[in-house]
Design a protein around this nucleic acid. Structure first.
Length: 679
DNA sequence: AGCACGCCGACT
DNA sequence: GTCGGCGTGCTC
């Protein structure tokens, strides 16, 4: 048979594959294989697609069928397992297969013109040669670490494990030694093995990459994240796809990579919200990773000091095996003492209570470092006129314009629009406009007044806009050139500041009363994480223990009691009980239909119609409501929550629902999110 | 989503 | 007279 029909997945919103004719030619007599890339004519343009199936017939009328233009034969086919992963993700998140499979491929492979893989391959070889072996032994583990590493390495088949360890307990060492054991065993057996390590944000954990390189001399390491340049991305992706890279360090997008010899998956800080993609295909890299481990029958490690309630629940029920690290890895490094400052009694000036100022002063006198955490960038979240009540609303969004003092501008954090700070009130002319509230810039300014001699640095998205500037800033802290660091959640993650003995948390209370039921879970994780920055080195003989001070107006709140006791267990138990009573995840499953339009009513009407589109048992369809941030960039947004106690029932409903919605010819832009995290 | 076609308003 | 606004329809 000289002719075949190829079913091709293309990156379009159309939810089906396209059939193309393939004819044997001089250079390729054999038909293509599923998983190969092809160039095809598509409408009036050309597109790169993935071969899904090779058939002998098509249901498409012969006069509509077009010929495949080119086969990317130089690239080994993507594996059936990879195609199955894409198919699962497409099904589960209700997106077309091509939209899952294609955008994750390097741009150079998706380009119409042929690329030279040779150049990329030479680059890989050169990079590998650059890191010559300078062999270093693994540091000794404590008993709990060793037990965990051995358990991971000894696991057979699909083995999901929750590595629950306090901050600074040395989870990374456990990952690396388990990986070393698995790689060594494969080498002894003469088989190929790859270990995938996912991290929330690669730029915030630069030590890890160096750590792996020195620990695994001669072992090829690939990194996959969105910060790579195109040529680099192709080289890294190829080294993984061709099975050369043995350790793959990546962010969430790495879970969709071709990993032909995958034998172990590790997800560091598994609770971190960054594992959820928040646009396009809204996947959870953690959930896909668990599916992938199940598919390949391999172990997967979910590591955290404050696991997601989903994973914790699985560990409690026995579905995941729980491995625990209860102590800090560095001997004599103890957990910091966490205390509260009642802001009703100790009134803050410049955002700082006298207790915190005294603690900062002590650190300055002793030559130790301090970290202040405030999850709000800018100078003040809003400016207002005392005389007439005007406030700096964004004209395009239901949000305030934030004052950015260094640039002398008001800026909307949602639509990005900016303006100069008005000299006087736009409505009444009053020249005395007041900044209300406090962001990192304002705290930095206040600190400079209180401690004029101190070396103060601010780290947030604004201060680190230029590439590499975040790294430079963190390096300065590590070199001891900074006394007081003030920052947003950027400073809470991963960094191991050895001379840091004080953490101050300035204004965490807003999350206590959020409408988002996950806010307290996130706040707890954030507080534990930032508290964990203190006291990572061994405590000096007779020295003072590290301290964490939390400024709050609600010192009686149970969340703070749990943070003070470093007691995730009972905090999680309480939250899970609440969630069960309230019928919330992880006890039920959700999907969210969003609609946007110039007119709010149009969006709500569409959702109302959608809610009546089909009837289905065991499904709760709630009323459409405007989103909490209703208008962004002059677009009104509304949403409709769908719930079920059964995941299969929800999946079956969504499949039928999507068919009905696509047939509705909506006048709005709509999208579906499965397992939403921000409601 | 792209990318075309198509039918009406205001510019050199 | 043309340039260009975005409604509508198609992609094997």
């Amino acid at each position: 048979m000289k002719h075949r029909i190829l079913q091709i997945a293309l990156d379009t919103p159309l939810d089906f594959c396209f059939d193309y004719r393939w004819s044997a030619s001089a250079e390729s007599a054999e038909p293509p294989l599923p998983g190969q890339l092809v160039v095809v004519p598509f409408g009036r343009r050309e597109a790169v697609g993935v071969v899904i199936a090779v058939e002998t017939q098509s249901e498409v009328p012969a006069n509509k069928l077009k010929d495949v233009l080119a086969l990317r034969a130089q690239l080994p086919p993507l594996s059936p397992q990879w195609l199955a992963l894409c198919r699962f993700a497409a099904d589960y998140y209700q997106r077309p297969l091509g939209e899952v499979a294609i955008p994750g491929l390097p741009k150079n492979l998706r380009a119409i013109k042929t690329v030279s893989l040779d150049r990329a391959l030479k680059k890989i070889a050169k990079d590998a040669a650059m890191h010559d072996p300078a062999p270093r032994a693994m540091p000794p583990l404590n008993a709990a670490q060793q037990q965990a590493a051995d358990a991971i390495a000894a696991a057979q088949g699909f083995a999901p494990m929750l590595l629950y360890g306090v901050t600074g307990s040395g989870k990374t060492e456990v990952y690396l030694q388990a990986a070393a054991q698995i790689l060594a065993r494969a080498e002894a057996d003469g088989t190929a093995a790859q270990v995938l390590i996912l991290v929330p944000e690669i730029n915030l954990t630069p030590q890890l990459e160096n750590n792996i390189r020195t620990r695994f001399p001669g072992v090829e390491l690939a990194t996959l994240h969105s910060g790579l340049a195109e040529g680099e991305r192709l080289a890294q992706w190829l080294s993984v796809h061709l099975g050369r890279a043995r350790i793959i360090l990546g962010t969430r997008l790495a879970i969709l990579a071709s990993l032909p010899h995958l034998k172990l998956i590790i997800i560091d800080e598994e609770h971190d919200p960054s594992y959820k993609q928040q646009e396009g295909l809204r996947y959870s890299a953690r959930d896909l990773a668990v599916w992938r481990a199940h598919q390949l029958a391999i172990p997967i490690v979910l590591g955290s000091a404050t696991p997601s309630l989903e994973s914790w629940q699985h560990a409690q029920s026995g579905r995941y095996r729980k491995l625990e690290l209860r102590e800090r890895a560095v001997r004599d490094a103890v957990l910091p003492r966490v205390r509260l400052i009642n802001m009703e009694r100790d009134k803050p000036a410049e955002g700082l209570t006298s207790t915190l100022v005294t603690a900062l002063k002590q650190r300055l006198d002793r030559g130790e470092q301090s970290l202040l955490f405030l999850n709000r960038r800018g100078y003040s979240p809003v400016i207002a006129c005392d005389a007439c009540g005007w406030i700096s609303n964004c004209t395009r969004c239901t949000a305030f314009m934030v004052l950015h003092k260094p640039e002398q501008r008001l800026r909307c954090h949602h639509c990005g629009c900016e303006q100069r700070i008005p000299r006087s009130c736009p409505t009444c002319g009053n020249v005395d406009l007041q900044p209300l509230g406090r962001g990192t810039q304002r705290v930095e300014e206040g600190l400079q007044q209180v401690f004029p001699q101190a070396r103060i640095m601010r780290i947030d998205a604004d201060s680190t806009r230029r590439k590499g500037s975040a790294q430079a800033a963190f390096d300065a802290v590590h070199r001891g050139e900074i006394d007081i660091l003030i920052g947003t959640q950027m400073v809470a993650k991963g960094h191991d500041f050895r001379n840091l003995t004080l953490v101050g948390v300035l204004n965490p209370d807003t999350a206590l009363f959020s409408h988002d039921y996950r806010a307290s879970e996130r706040l707890f994780a954030q507080l534990m994480q930032v508290a964990g920055r203190a006291g990572r080195a061994a405590q000096k003989e007779g020295g003072n223990p590290s301290e964490v001070w939390i400024q709050t107006r609600y010192p009686q709140h149970p969340l703070y009691a749990a943070v003070m006791a470093h007691d995730y267990d009972s905090f999680a138990l309480g939250l899970l009980e609440e969630r069960q009573h309230a019928g919330l995840p992880p006890f039920i499953y959700q999907a969210l239909l969003r609609a946007e339009s110039k007119e709010l009513q149009t969006a709500l009407d569409f959702l109302q119609e959608a809610s009546r589109a089909i009837a289905y048992p065991a499904i709760t369809i709630n009323d459409p409501i405007p989103m909490s941030l209703t208008r962004v960039a002059n677009v009104e947004r509304a949403q409709l929550l769908v719930e079920s106690a059964s995941r299969p029932a929800l999946q079956a409903f969504l499949r039928e629902w999507m068919v009905a919605l696509r047939g509705m010819k909506a006048r709005v832009k709509w999208s579906l999110e499965v397992d939403p995290v921000d409601i």
